[in-house]
Amino acid sequence: MADALHPADRARLAVFLTPAYLWLTLAVFLPLSAMLFFSFVTDMPGDVDQWFVTLSNYGEFLRNPTYASLMWKSLKLAFTVTILCILIGYPCALVLAKSVKGRTREALFLMVILPFWSNSLVRIFSWAIVLRGNGVLEKALNAVLPFEVKLKLLFTTDAVVIGLVHSYLPYVILTSYLALQAVSDDLIDAARSMGASSLTILWRILLPLSLPGLLAGAVLVFVPVVGSFMEPRILGGRMGTYYGTVIEDQFVAVYNWPLGAALSFILLAVVLVVLALASPVLRKAKT
């Protein structure tokens, strides 16, 4: 069947497929190629009469230690957020998949993933309201606790971490839940009937079998967090300079697009390395 496509079928195939892929080419693949090209020029062609092909944009990353240290800061942030999402989200997925049943489970699952599909900018903004000094969280804590607490959370790294965990937690819960749901209950019952404790079942059966899903979720958190710029801007204040915000600046404030393009491509390279490292596991997660 794979080889003998009827000419009429071939025409139909082209008619059905071409518009979608043409669009993706024009709006995703060509732009990425253009950006790669512009990361190797001195000035934006069109803006100036003279421009040269150069490696200096990439050289700038090596010359100025600020960029490397910001990349490191962004990677550390992504690592922290990913670990927290796993520690908080995996137990939650476990409860959803193996402890709650039927319509309750369906409703709870929907409630967990619903915020993830709502506006991320607005959710980050809502944390700015909660965390601000003399804000709701501080008032609530002081009403409950006998001693006075002064939360100085807004415009700190902690605030950025809280906001990002809130934004990306549903990814880990979603992928872990789907993987855990695929683990047959019979397997667990069999282990239990042979005297395995709950901890043994988790460690020897559930965790290994759902690991691809868990890691897929971790990658889905890690990748966007490395490139985040809006969350650090809103919640981080002066502490909120990260690799992503520097790229943003090149395009909207400094207008050094070639440097921005080079910085973006270095970020893309980091992302691709992460995806490549995870791809054997991710491929397993798909099945």
Binding site: A34, M35, S228
Partner: peptide, 27 residues
Amino acid sequence: VLQALLFPPIAIPWLITGTAMLILFFS
């Protein structure tokens, strides 16, 4: 290959896709 090509628009951070679009659309 066509199915795999659906992956980059989802997986690449929007910061990169967005700035790349800006560069191409401008030029």
